[in-house]
């Protein structure tokens, strides 16, 4: 009994900083914030959302300001940057201003649903994982809006990656994850990739440092507004990153 009370006191001091990098997400940002509030506001977890807008020409920052007025500046923090500078540096920038001891990163295009965040937190607490990753590839997870070709590329790439790298995590290119703050800092410091393969390198480095990884199946609903892209250059980037990690880790 005493242990339970002690545990809950520890839990109370935990704070979760959600980093939301945005670029032209005027349509999606209000919805994602509303969903975060819906699923976290009554959960009892202490949290903040840090919006890192990279000078979107569509006025994302203006919508973000309105949302800050509605939900309060203790819950919504704006840390905009002048121009598009890339995902990795967006996390570094956001983390500098984060007051939580846990960092949650997710996409702001509604493909990552905030309803999974409480599941991430619970799983992290159960096993004291260093990071918890959402996965589309495990039972209960999945994707919406992908045709045969897209699924084939995704499954094929995943198979080859698992074979060559044995990463101990099933979804390497997903970017819906919860990290202990110092763990994320260490991973970012050691990563060299840019672009979306950055996510893959992060989890491979995590294995290298022997961080513990938990997984939560997530449903991934591909871009509701705007277009999702997977072209030749993404595949080349992926192959390069795969070979680089194969030869160096």
């Amino acid at each position: 009994m005493a242990a339970t009370i002690y545990d809950s006191e520890i839990t109370k001091s935990d704070k979760y900083s959600i980093l939301l990098p945005t670029y032209n997400e005027r349509e999606n940002l209000p919805i994602i914030i509303w969903l975060i509030m819906k699923y976290l506001d009554n959960s009892g977890y202490d949290f903040e959302v840090i919006i890192i807008d990279d000078g979107s020409p569509d006025g994302t920052l203006d919508v973000a300001k309105q949302l800050q007025n509605i939900y309060g500046s203790s819950k919504i923090l704006l840390r905009p940057r002048e121009k598009k500078l890339g995902l990795g540096t967006a996390y570094v920038h956001g983390m500098k201003h984060a007051t939580g001891n846990f960092i949650i990163i997710m996409d702001s295009d509604l493909s990552h649903h905030p309803k999974f965040i409480p599941q991430f937190i619970e799983l992290q607490q159960e096993q004291d994982y260093d990071l918890v990753s959402g996965t589309r590839y495990k039972d209960g997870g999945g994707v919406y809006g992908w045709d045969f070709k897209r699924k084939l590329i995704s499954r094929g790439a995943n198979f080859i990656t698992q074979l060559l790298l044995r990463p101990g995590a099933s979804d390497l290119t997903g970017s819906f994850r919860l990290y202990k703050k110092d763990v994320l800092q260490k991973l970012i410091d050691s990563c060299v990739s840019k672009g979306y393969v950055f996510q893959m390198e992060m989890i491979i480095r995590a294995r290298q440092f022997e961080f513990t990884i938990g997984e939560v199946p997530i449903t991934f609903v591909d871009r509701v507004y705007g277009e999702s892209k997977l072209g030749g250059s993404e595949i080349v980037q992926f192959a390069k990153a795969l070979l680089y990690l194969f030869a160096t880790t």
Partner: peptide, 12 residues
């Protein structure tokens, strides 16, 4: 795995 990839109609 491609053919059993869950389509998440409900989630959408």
């Amino acid at each position: 795995r491609v053919f059993t990839f869950n389509n998440c109609e409900e989630a959408a």
